[in-house]
């Protein structure tokens, strides 16, 4: 870190105190409490806690519902960022060509960023409704082809599409900014040497875009774990038959509907560890990403 210029204990303390107090109370204490409750059991009628060691962990880890929620979370974590970033990349490469439509695309494609997941859910649940939505004619022709209310895969797909709709804007903007920062001279020189557009994408644009691609994956991985909540809560409530119960939704249900504080806290602690490992892995990977241009 660069050496600063000023010195002085009092003003320094006053300047950093607000943010430290805020994050200690509303971030570090909750994180600590999650680990605390994962080793303790709340007494049934309130007032105090009993230390139970790893019993909570044993209970959660032997619960098949936890593992199926974890598996769904993993599938979702691979599919949603992969598709959202892939589509954003194609769109960004197209918009980067500076065509007449580019500025319109730039402006419109960012809009979903400003729409809350829960609002999207309210609209998409209607769009995908088996009898009122866009696929209603399909259902009239082939009854029962599409029904997210009863078919788990259909329901999972609706959440996925809504998540991608919500996830495109930010990835698109990051990737487009990255593409536009690539010096024009490089592309021109390559074109002079006879490299066609596809060749330039593969050998110049994509390699130089690695930092932005990395950034989008880092943000998306953690983002999708939590952002799907608003969609699930408004579109499927975790159903049908638990097919869309991702871990974040299960924790909410366990904690606030079933009042199982220790169980929810234990799953929270496991999810924190999981995210921590993911972030560490990503930063190990980052060492292989070139940043110089």
């Amino acid at each position: 870190m660069r050496q600063g210029f000023y010195s002085g204990g009092w003003t320094y303390t006053l300047l950093v105190a607000p943010i430290l107090i805020l994050i200690v109370i509303f971030f570090y204490i909750p994180v600590g409490l999650a680990f605390f409750w994962s080793f303790f059991l709340e007494r049934p009628f309130g007032g105090g806690s009993d230390f139970v060691g790893f019993q909570n962990y044993a209970r959660v880890l032997s619960d098949p519902e936890f593992w199926s929620a974890m598996r769904r979370t993993l599938v979702f974590m691979v599919l949603a960022p992969g598709l959202a970033i892939g589509i954003s990349l194609i769109l960004a490469l197209a918009a980067d060509r500076g065509l007449r439509l580019s500025s319109a695309a730039r402006n419109i494609i960012i809009w979903p960023k400003a729409v809350a997941g829960a609002s999207i859910g309210v609209v998409f649940v209607f769009i995908f409704d088996p009898f009122l939505g866009v696929f209603a004619p399909l259902n009239e022709a082939f009854p029962g082809v599409w029904n997210p209310r009863t078919d788990g895969n259909d329901a999972f797909a609706t959440i996925l599409v809504a998540q991608i709709w919500n996830g495109i804007p930010f990835n698109f903007i990051i990737l487009l900014s990255g593409l536009q920062a690539i010096p024009d001279t490089l592309t021109k020189a390559a074109a002079m040497d006879g490299a066609g557009p596809w060749r330039r994408i593969r050998d110049i644009q994509l390699p130089l875009l690695t930092p932005q691609l990395f950034l989008t994956f880092v943000l998306e991985f953690v983002g999708t774990i939590v952002e799907a909540f608003g969609l699930i809560d408004t579109m499927t409530q975790g159903g049908p038959g638990g097919a869309t119960t991702l871990l974040i939704y299960k924790i909410y249900v366990d904690g606030f509907k079933a009042y199982d504080l220790s169980g929810a806290a234990t799953q929270t602690a496991l999810l924190i560890l999981f995210v921590g490992i993911m972030v560490l892995l990503q930063f190990r990977l980052e060492k292989h990403v070139k940043y110089e241009r």
Partner: peptide
């Protein structure tokens, strides 16, 4: 760690 992870 997003807030949503630690709401409980």
């Amino acid at each position: 760690l997003p807030l949503e992870l630690i709401v409980i």
